[in-house]
Amino acid sequence: MSVGLAQAMGLQFTQDWKLAVRSRSDWANPMIFFVLVITLLPLGIGPEVKQLAAIAPGMIWIVALLATLLSLDAMFRSDWDDGSLEQMLISPHPLPMLVLSKIAVHWLVTGLPLTLLSPLLGLMLSLPEAGYLPLIVSLFIGSACLSFIGAIGAALTVALRQGGLLISLIIMPFYVPVLIFGASAAMRAVQGFEYHGLLVMLGGFLALAVAGAPFAVAAALRISSEG
């Protein structure tokens, strides 16, 4: 059955989207985790407004990062278990493009909801007003970077049973630049400095990740299915 590349990517996207929407835990659990950890924060360090406000941007970013990490293992796991991954591997279409569709869905059901939720958490941590816009924009771009980079880890560990923790271990160092620029943007906005340059850098990271990560993911998926 001959299908064009665009249609093949569309089919992959639709299937993943339907699956993600139907399995509530996929998109709901990271969000619950996100809110829960932020709730624990004042309980751990005290409810003092000034202190909370100071760490709010960094803390929200770190928890968003952790929530994304937790969701990564599921990215290719079910495809691996039910044989869909084999079907992707033997598809006439380039694997990196099919992977691109999958990562896009992953971002839509984890990164985007976390971004939309972040103002609420800013409110809970009494984030100063100037911080909201840069926080949302930086999470919007940055969480996409997290999905792309994280997909490499998910693909490398899909053949292993103890995936979850190992993904965090191998991927977290690569999250360092994204975290630095994302959190710093919001932090600097709160302090009244210029922050647009940092967001532009985040955009640059995203461009690099979109261009490079799908190829690494495709190579990793092929390696995982050997043996």
Partner: peptide, 27 residues
């Protein structure tokens, strides 16, 4: 540490080498 952790997780030597190479190149 990530490279080493990935390396020891695979029982198949070929896979271990290829997977950690991909990770090292991304690094």
């Amino acid at each position: 540490l990530g490279i080493m952790a990935l390396q020891v997780s695979f029982t198949n030597q070929q896979q271990a080498a290829s997977a950690s190479t991909i990770l090292a190149l991304v690094g």
